[in-house]
């Protein structure tokens, strides 16, 4: 990106983003990865030595909770992503094809409105709805439909409900942009050649919107597997995810080295899933490297 040895204007424009990436991702990740292979903090503990024990602790899992936590993290991420996609896709499609500008603006506002409230507030709102003395259980008991409160909270169900509510807007906004750019006439052409509404959607619109599905899914999956507040508040003791374990190790067990190892493991596993997902979607759409 240089012109006769001088950086081009594009390079200057990219510099702040690159600097942010290095300062707030590469550097912290490097520190975390380095800490994960030491017995203590090598900066202020001269006796800290190189070790693989934190990774061994996870791999051999003699405590019997780490593998479960990883699986729970991925399971919650996958289910949240799938439900967000199922809810978000029809909504995004409707928004993208809406003729009325006012209607589009109103739906867009409805989608964005929850994002104006913090995640903690939205999670507490779900707690007041789903807890034993919450809105749903109180009504069900009052109406005589049940005599005991339904277990709507302090489990994976409640966690996923709250996560889906929080992350659906990310899916909708990502998909709306992609679907909006698909030429409607392609679908019309398919229908004029005899395809039904469903077949035209499945064979034309859906494949063309795969980049949006990929981008939205990756965004929601990444946010879900790294969520801390919502699983902590909504999950009770039934839900233990890796971000919760990492926070525990840093904040109450004061073991940043094992927390670093858990962070590296979560990142590597997530990367493997993202690469596999990318390849599967690329194969489905007949292209290579969608993302």
């Amino acid at each position: 990106m240089t012109t006769r040895g001088r950086p081009s204007p594009i390079a200057w424009l990219l510099a702040p983003a690159a600097l942010l990436f290095v300062l707030f991702f590469v550097l912290p990740f490097g520190v975390m990865a380095a800490m994960s292979v030491f017995s203590g903090n090598p900066v202020n503990n001269p006796n800290a030595f190189l070790t693989t024990r934190h990774y061994e602790r996870f791999v051999f899992d003699t405590a019997g909770i780490y593998h479960d936590a990883l699986w729970a993290t991925l399971r919650i991420g996958l289910i949240t992503t799938i439900i967000s996609l199922l809810i978000g896709y029809p909504l995004a499609h409707w928004m993208a094809r809406m003729q009325s500008r006012l209607g589009h603006a109103l739906v867009l506002m409805a989608v964005i409105a929850p994002m104006l409230t913090g995640i903690v507030v939205r999670t507490f709102a779900w707690m007041t709805i789903l807890q034993d003395k919450g809105v749903i259980n109180t009504l069900l008991i009052q109406w005589g439909l049940t005599d005991k409160p339904l277990p709507l909270m302090y489990n994976e169900f409640g966690t996923i409900v709250a996560l889906v509510h929080i992350y659906v807007p990310f899916m909708v906004l990502t998909l709306t942009g992609v679907i909006g750019r698909i030429d409607e006439r392609l679908e019309q052409a398919a229908r004029s050649l005899g395809a039904g509404r469903l077949r035209a959607f499945v064979e034309v619109t859906l494949p063309l919107s795969l980049p949006g599905i990929l981008a939205g899914s990756l965004l929601v999956f990444a946010l879900s597997i790294s969520a801390y507040v919502t699983p902590s508040l909504m999950g009770g003791t039934d839900v233990l995810t890796l971000p919760m374990l990492i926070a525990q190790q840093v904040g109450t067990s004061f073991n940043p080295n094992f927390a670093g190892a858990l962070g590296v493991i979560l990142l590597l596993v997530s990367l493997a899933i993202v690469i596999a997902y990318n390849r599967i979607l690329a194969r489905l759409s007949g292209e290579q490297g969608l993302a």
């Binding site: 405590a63 019997g64 909770i65 003791t237 039934d238 233990l240 525990q248 067990s253 073991n255």
Partner: peptide, 15 residues
């Protein structure tokens, strides 16, 4: 003993 206790109580209280 915190690490061992944490693992044990997590298993006890889950579910």
């Amino acid at each position: 003993r915190k690490e061992d206790i944490d693992a044990r109580v997590t298993k006890i209280l889950k579910g």
